[in-house]
Design a protein around this nucleic acid. Sequence first.
DNA 1: GCAACGCTTTGATCTGTATCAAGGCGTTGA
DNA 2: TCAACGCCTTGATACAGATCAAAGCGTTGC
Lengths: 258, 258
Amino acid sequence: MAEKKANAVQLRQIREACRTCSLSDLCLPVALESPDVDALDNIVQRRRPLSRGDVLYRAGGRFNAIYAVRTGALKSMSVSEDGEEQITAFHLPGELVGLDAISFGTHPSTACALETTSICEIPFGELEDLAEEIPGLQRQLLRIMSKEIFSEQEMLHALARRTAEQRLAILLISLSDRFSRRGLSATRFRLPMSRHELSNYLGLAPETMSRLFRRFAENGWITAAGKEIVLEDPQGLRAMTNGGSAPVHRGIGRASDA
Amino acid sequence: MAEKKANAVQLRQIREACRTCSLSDLCLPVALESPDVDALDNIVQRRRPLSRGDVLYRAGGRFNAIYAVRTGALKSMSVSEDGEEQITAFHLPGELVGLDAISFGTHPSTACALETTSICEIPFGELEDLAEEIPGLQRQLLRIMSKEIFSEQEMLHALARRTAEQRLAILLISLSDRFSRRGLSATRFRLPMSRHELSNYLGLAPETMSRLFRRFAENGWITAAGKEIVLEDPQGLRAMTNGGSAPVHRGIGRASDA
DNA sequence: GCAACGCTTTGATCTGTATCAAGGCGTTGA
DNA sequence: TCAACGCCTTGATACAGATCAAAGCGTTGC
């Protein structure tokens, strides 16, 4: 079929972009050697980009597909009865979105673009069908899913019972790690979310966020100009995420000063 | 084979206990109608009971199997560098333990019995092998896993950014739901964990826990005698978990008085 | 160019919960 | 029966971070 051929070509084109994606373990090692390569690629759909504020799916909506972020960023959020929105996750390029709907059949949360964002859509039913045909794909699927799910859970645990300072440090390090895993700079990046969204996610008041950024900068750990962040002293940051006991700030100037 | 026959008999015996287990979706609907019923049952091993404090697996240990709690209860915990233990989950009868190791190959946390506890062990490799043979089992597996994982995650989100009062209420309701789902009373149960373990899990000081229990009793929401708990007013409890805005306590006596 | 708006920052105050410090009470062992 | 221990409770105090209030400042639209 001409269609299949077209897809095969397309596959080669996107392979580069896919290499740092969470799905790459699914797409590449398994699919590469098999004639099923087209089958897997066939079900992955590229959609037209979302703009800031666009909703990918809404809480309560039917679960049809999972998504991989290609560029840009999304937030997952749930809205409580009293109308307050609570951000439950940020999704950066290469990460999967919508996994929390697998067991329910409907989306428990709403996914919304933080900036202009392009995504891959993987219809879940077709993926499952495929997994039954391609040996090994099933295992990969389970591992990838549980990895994505648990890395989020780890984050939650890491944030629980931490001071405001530690939470922000943990988040910055997490973002750094996630950017660098996708081949971007680990020390210099642009926050895709506003201060307000950050504070919402971390469970802090926006005012506290603001004060923290200032304090972090005073301590020489970061340089922050709006959303542009430079991690000047990742070690210093990392140090204070450990043992809630470690005394922090207090002193003036950067930790590395003599 | 005699062994197979013995297992078939055993299967019938345990089926009752299994009916309320998280694995029942795996064991029963799928396996019941298939000749593979023995195959699935064969790989599930009953182990001798754990006593309070016994460790099921230790953080860092190799991942071989997942477990289902039959009776009793477990806690999952991680120990930070400074030696502080942090409880990350409680596992009640019918729930699965060890899922967080799937993606890593090693256990990220330690599982420890809160009281005398009996469990089923399901070697994961064999389960995966089986899933490749039995159509549908793979899907069930994925759904069950993601359900178990996400219900924990929901709990974490529910606890984040809540007052101490709300956290305890949320936990009590969660326990109530989980007990009742397994056929036990939703309003009268025995806490398997100590106040200290509770406070650790909820991220509160033990003293705060104590004060909360008193306040809850004063408000007529619960009656607590040691670990024996009676939910006198589940609605009252549920009400205060919602919208952090709702004013709580303050007044004297139970909410339903007038 | 200016006004209006939203986001961020800064300052002052208030409060929930931790922490410190004892005291009660049930349980274990001699 | 009594002492010793651990767990839980109770009270007093301290502090991190929320909340209230208002002022900068960059953006958007006219």
